[in-house]
Design a protein around this nucleic acid. Structure first.
Length: 479
RNA sequence: CGGGGAGUGGCUCAGCCUGGUAGAGCACUUGGUUCGGGACCAAGGGGUCGCAGGUUCAAAUCCUGUCUCCCCGACCA
């Protein structure tokens, strides 16, 4: 007997692309490698922005904006940086009907142009720390693209900070990594491993790169955010100096950190099922959809009016509680159609309300991830929805974490590593040699993700407290 | 750039082998009946079959060239 395969089992990639298009999150564009983010998809981004922006501000970071175009010479000032990004650049050579004397690069990231400003703004240690963030689009000409996960143009935030000491920069790097960890786990319900990247995986121009790594439902890793300690590399290239407490000139110590619309891809790949999208309540634009039933065609007008009145009263109560509520009273569609439609687009909770419920002063509630009907008295509806959303947020995280833990293994030999190459996260010892890393990738398709560690919040900063993997590094196939 | 696959109404695809001037399902429009898990019936609108050559009385179909897209790898958030 052949088992019936679910869409995800048949082809994870196809399921993913199909879901994004069916849920109306995004489309392919005619512009190669670029995507069109539709309102459903953009709503997720807006919520990510809203939450993250608040977290940044709580850390003392302020928003600013820098130009899209960067003089090519700026990029060339930092040798590793230009070498790393060169193959991925889109370059503007003509403008105003003329060939430009110096081409402009469409930003792949903004360290260089921001440092140009930093070097003008910073005079003294009193100007430090300088903590900036920008919400922007960037462009990287990738060989292969995938909706949300890797597109030629993408939306992101990039934070850039300047500090007086190396220690301050390192603390900031870790603090922002912790912000990403918190956001991923507490809001996206996506468990992540914070850790340090290897030399070969590090950001071009950085001293050290840290990342958070998540596991998707196909057991592949997704780098969901990075935080770099830039040292003085860019400060030296752009001559960003300040007069220190000792009266001497010093180069600033810098960090940069970024996360992108890729997070939306991570959200989908972590939680969604064969019925469609599942969105953690804390990031959902629509928490509740109320579907009035028994209101079509020949239903008595009085009954219909009664149902609709109750539905709108309930919607008002839920909105008053701060929830995103949609009433789907479209009479041209059947309830069954609507159930499927809202499951596809990931509405967290569905409420069905019809004459039968009205008679009992109750309603039917269904949590998106469980899809089980529950009868709830109308006067308890609001508190019940809130409890359901809380529980759903927790359950999604737990489910994802259990999945990751069940697919994380310690391996102690190359043979074992190779044998388990498709099984998830492999914690292995590694001699630190880039050649070994390259050979393993060549032979198994595995890449190093990060060397995990724990982070601890202390007043005003965040510090590394230990290595839970006993010096092991995470190998995994990755997006 | 290598290895696969595909280009036919808005979408998914059949037709191609064995040439005869284009079909289905979904979606859309109109009317009617429906409406508690993707409703049904009827009537409509919409495509010169990726592009360019060639063979032929005749090309979606055969030949040559070309472009594009998707999947797997190399690059990468």
């Amino acid at each position: 007997m052949a088992e019936k395969l679910t869409p995800r089992e048949k082809g994870f990639s196809e399921w993913y692309v199909d879901l994004i298009q069916k849920a109306k999150l995004a489309d392919y564009s005619d512009v190669k490698g670029c995507m069109v983010i539709r309102p459903n998809g953009y709503a997720l981004w807006e919520n990510i922005q809203r939450v993250m922006d608040k977290m940044f501000k709580d850390e003392g970071v302020r928003n600013a904006y820098f130009p899209l175009l960067i003089p090519e010479s700026y990029l060339k000032k930092e040798a590793e940086h230009v070498e790393g990004f060169n193959p991925q650049l889109a370059i503007v050579t003509h403008a105003g009907g003329q060939k430009l004397e110096e081409p402009y690069v469409i930003r792949p990231t903004s360290e260089t142009i921001i440092n140009r400003s930093f070097s003008k703004w910073i005079q003294s240690y009193r100007d430090l720390p300088l903590l900036l963030n920008q919400w922007a689009n960037v462009m990287r000409w990738e060989m292969r693209t995938r909706l949300f996960l890797r597109t030629t143009e993408f939306l992101w935030q990039e934070g850039h900070t300047c500090h007086e000491t190396e220690e301050d920069a390192e603390k900031r790097t870790l603090t922002m990594l912790e912000v990403y960890r918190t956001f991923a786990e507490d809001y996206m319900a996506m468990p992540v491993l914070p850790g340090r990247k290897t030399e070969s995986e590090k950001f071009a121009g950085a001293l050290r790169t840290y990342s958070i790594e998540a596991m998707m439902q196909d057991k592949k890793a997704l780098q969901a955010g990075t935080s770099h300690n830039l040292g003085q590399n860019f400060a030296k290239a752009f001559d960003t100096q300040f007069q220190g407490r000792d009266g001497q000139q010093h180069h600033v110590w810098q960090t940069s950190w970024g996360s992108s619309t890729r997070l939306i891809g991570g959200l989908i790949l972590t939680h969604s099922d064969d019925a469609g999208l599942i969105v953690p309540p804390k990031l959902a634009a629509t928490h509740v959809v109320i579907i009035p039933v028994g209101i079509g065609g020949k239903a008595p007008e009085a009954e219909k009016a009664q149902v609709l009145e109750k539905v709108h009263a309930l919607a008002a109560d839920l909105r008053k509680a701060g929830l995103g509520v949609v009433v789907d009273d479209d009479e041209t569609k059947t309830p069954g159609f609507k159930y499927n439609e809202h499951e596809l687009t990931g509405t967290c909770v569905r409420i069905e309300l019809g004459p039968k419920d009205l008679a009992k002063s109750s309603c039917v509630m269904v949590r998106r991830d469980l899809r089980q009907k529950e009868f709830v008295p109308l006067d308890e509806a609001v508190t019940k929805v809130q409890a359901m959303l809380d529980q759903m947020q927790k359950d999604l995280f737990k489910k994802a974490k259990d999945f990751r833990d069940a697919h994380t293994f310690e391996v102690n030999s190359f043979e074992e590593l190779k044998a388990k190459a498709d099984d998830g996260f492999l914690l292995a010892h590694w001699d630190g040699d880039a050649k070994t890393e390259a050979r393993i990738k060549e032979e198994t398709g595995l890449t190093t993700r990060c060397r995990p560690f724990s982070l601890k919040q202390e007043p005003g900063k965040c510090v590394m407290t230990g290595n839970p993997s006993q010096g092991r590094i995470v190998f995994s196939k990755a997006y």
